[in-house]
Each structure stands twice: as structure tokens, then as C-alpha cells.
Design a protein around this nucleic acid. Structure first.
Lengths: 241, 241
DNA sequence: GAGACGGTTCGGCCCGGACCGAACCGTGTG
DNA sequence: CACACGGTTCGGTCCGGGCCGAACCGTCTC
């Protein structure tokens, strides 16, 4: 026997059960889902979904990210997505008409902007992070790091002291967003960035909630600084979740 | 839900059981296996393998071909092979080093040449059939048909009368080979072809068995006629099963 | 600190389905 | 015709594992 049928089967069996298949299919949108959401989507009890999630993570099909009392689950890597897609294709279904994995989100509203603890999150946070990744941040397997250009960029924005670590907190850190389900910038620099944007009047924090609103001046400034275009929506108010 | 998780799962579940996975893995060599062989390979009773085979055929993963009391099973199409390969890859196995599906057979001995009732079978029969498919035969879903070029080719070889049907027998017909587990040419033209090759001294039938031997002249002629190269082995004797 | 909430663990139920052997059927052979 | 043989069908057993609800744990909020 060239390959071990047992291991292949064990792997296929994970997708061979409607509930787990439904969970993986749901995750095909490329975002991270919580256990409760997956449970509801698949129509089973949370406890059941939790057990399935554990099995899928252990097998390497899913990756998890724990944050506080939340557990975010996503497809482990594009290879897994390819496998699931193969399977749906083989099952006779015409696969998803819109481009898979990516692109689904493109059609969605990028409305929410808010703080996550003490840094910016929501679509705004994610967009900022995306733009920073172009020049200023390096997301390697070893972790997130600041590039030389990024060092300059942050120094220009917030002065020399901005780059000083505070306490045990790392300078840069990715943080998973609970609406966008994608990463945004945490760590000391995340705080600094948030603070600067508020300080400069580019975003205005809400009194009651954690929402922030991007001002016209802020939209212009971010466009100039990062090529980030928030001005297409015709309103400066971006509401919360 | 974009795609039905149930149907995906049902499909994956077929491969999610060690016995069925072992059967499909065995069929990855691109040949056709009998139920008994698959049963032995997977280490289960024939009855069990038979039931699995039925399920796999009904699902569209396998294709079957019944011949007399035999039932030959093979992977339904290259897509299925791709799926199985994806799965083995995802399961951590390094997938098969040699090129998959095709090419496995290339490394094997093409030794056997013999008759199947009244036409040529074995590796020789399969090779001839393969070459004929290039120009002279058309294997469509509607069945096997002779092309215009094929009509000329056979007329040149055996005269006008060669193309006349004899009795109820179809002019062209595929026949599954029991050693190569692949198709070769049966039907009236299969008989004609065999007869011509013997007539011209290109193959010599064995007295005792159904084996035939390809002569040097025959090897040269087949190379010239069909681009079939049998001359690399340095011997004119090709033995039987 | 109390309460809400997301997630996990555990015990127990229950069903699907994998498996076998025996009986049976159809095909091919001597 | 009898026999061998490949394959299928059927009855019955048994085990894995999917599922739930209840209890519990950590985190976060008020």
C-alpha cells in the first residue's frame, strides 16, 4: 500500500458528516466564526459544535484563535479550502458562483469603525492594518515586525517616544477583529496610532459606545498618509456594531 | 447556505471509511480491479466489498464494467483521482512520487500479448487500441465509432470486405482486458485486425496457449503503420498470462 | 460581588452503518 | 450435466460516534 488508507479515511471522515461539513462550508467565506455561530449555522447544540471544532482543529483542518472567552475558528490554510472546494465540486454542486474565499467580503459594507480595548478595530482598523502591511509592517512566520520604513512612519506620526515599549506589552501585535474577522494592529503601536488619530481630530470617539467616527479631515489625512480612501461613502459617520 | 452540506458530507463520507478509502487508493493505479481483488486488498469479505463497490458506483466515484461473471471497477474519471490525491496530500502523506494515474503503467512490462477469443488482447491489444484511438477510432459517450481515416486505414489493410459486418456482431467494440484491465479492440474489426496480423506473419500464434509472439517484421510494420514501438525490448517473444 | 455569557466537559442515549457468513444466482468449464 | 467460481443478497451483530442537556469554568460587564 503506497499510502495509508486509514489516515486518508480518518481525514475524509471529518468532512463526511453533515454537521462538520456545514461548519467547514460556512468557513469558506474566509472569515473566522465563533463556536456559537457555527453551532447555530449547522443547527446543533453548542456543546456539539465545540467538540467538532476541537476535532477539526486537532486534525489540522481548522485553525483557532482564542481571545478572552471567544474562540475564533477559520480554515487552516488555502489547501484546506481547495480540498473543500474539490469536494463540493465532486458532489455535483456547481461551486459558488462568486469568486471563492476572497471577494465575498468585497460586496459587504465596510461601515464599522470602533475601538478594540484601546486600539482601532472594525473595518477602519482592518483597512489601516492592510495599508500598513504594504510598507511598514512585516507579517512573517516569526511574527509581526516593524520595517525600517515603518519605524520612520511611526516616528514621523508620533515622535521618538512612540516606539518605546510600554510595560510587558509587545510593540506590535495582531489582533483579531470580531466583526470583520480579520486582523488589525494591536500592541503598543496600535494604541499609539489610535491615540494619534484621536489627538489630531481624525477620528472622534463616541461617548456611549466604543464607536468612532472618521472626520473629513481624517479621511483626507489617511488618504494622504496611507492611500486609504474612506471618502467614497459620502458620509463621515461610520457606525458601530 | 450556498451549497448543501448534506450532499458534500455524503460524498466525503464515502472516502471517510478505511475500507472504501483503501479500495479507491488501490484504483489510483488507473486500472480496473475486480470485487474479489478489492476485497482482498482491503482485507474484508467479498460481500462487504461488493456492497461498498455498489455504493461507490452509485455515487459516481467509481465506474463499473460488467463482463460475464466479472465486475471490473475503476475510478470514474480524472476528477475523482484528483480528489483522492488532494485528500492523501491533505492527510499529510507526500502523495505518490511517480506521476499519478497515467505513467504508472509506463514503467511496467508490456509483455503479454495474446488473443481474447478471436481478437488480440494483452498489452499488444491495448497498445494497438491506443494507437488506433489517435486517428481511426472515436470513443464517444455514444459508443465506439470508426472515423473516415479509420475506414481508409482498415480498407488499406484488409480490403473492402473488411468493413462488412458479420452476423449480429458489431463492427467495432471495446473489450476489457483481464490482465491489462484496459480496453482493446473487439468486434468484427478486432477479428479482422488479428487475422491480418497473423496472415502477414506479423504475429505468430502459439500452439498450446492463446499467446501470440510478435515477429521482427511485425514490430517494424506496426511501427510504420501506427507508430507503435515494440522493438525496444530486444526480443520478439512476448509471453502470456 | 452578582449576573450574563461564551465555551467546555461529561454522562447517556441512540442510530447508522460496517462487517460477516450463509444462501443464492449466473456464467463459464470439463 | 455437474461443478467451480465470481458476485450479490440477506439477516443479524456490534461498535463508533453524533447528539443533547446539565453542570461547570473563565471572562467580561455592571
Amino acid at each position: 500500500m503506497v499510502v495509508d488508507a486509514g489516515s486518508v479515511a480518518k481525514f475524509a471522515a471529518l468532512l463526511g458528516e453533515p454537521t462538520r461539513a456545514a461548519m467547514c462550508l460556512a468557513l469558506m467565506d474566509g472569515r473566522s466564526w465563533t463556536v456559537a455561530e457555527l453551532a447555530e449555522h449547522a443547527g446543533v447544540a453548542r456543546s456539539t459544535a465545540s467538540e467538532h471544532a476541537t476535532a477539526l482543529v486537532e486534525s489540522g483542518l481548522l485553525a483557532e484563535e482564542r481571545q478572552g472567552r471567544h474562540r475564533y475558528l477559520r480554515l487552516a490554510d488555502p489547501d484546506v479550502a481547495a480540498l473543500v472546494e474539490d469536494l463540493t465540486a465532486a458532489a455535483g454542486q456547481p461551486a459558488r458562483p462568486p469568486s471563492s474565499l476572497r471577494g465575498v467580503r468585497a460586496a459587504r459594507d465596510l461601515a464599522a469603525a470602533r475601538t478594540c480595548y484601546d486600539h482601532l478595530a472594525g473595518a477602519l482598523g482592518v483597512s489601516l492594518y492592510d495599508r500598513l502591511l504594504a510598507n511598514d509592517l512585516l507579517d512573517s512566520s516569526a511574527g509581526l515586525a516593524l520595517t525600517a520604513a515603518g519605524r520612520d512612519w511611526f516616528t514621523d506620526l508620533a515622535g521618538e517616544t512612540a516606539l518605546r515599549r510600554r510595560g510587558s506589552r509587545p510593540l506590535v501585535r495582531t489582533c483579531l477583529d470580531w466583526t470583520e474577522r480579520r486582523h488589525h494592529l494591536g500592541g503598543t503601536l496600535g494604541v499609539v496610532l489610535h491615540h494619534q488619530l484621536v489627538e489630531r481630530g481624525w477620528v472622534i470617539p463616541s461617548a456611549r459606545h466604543r464607536a468612532v467616527a472618521v472626520t473629513d479631515a481624517g479621511a483626507n489625512a489617511l488618504h494622504h498618509l496611507l492611500g486609504l480612501d474612506l471618502r467614497t461613502e459620502g458620509t463621515t459617520e461610520r457606525t458601530v456594531g
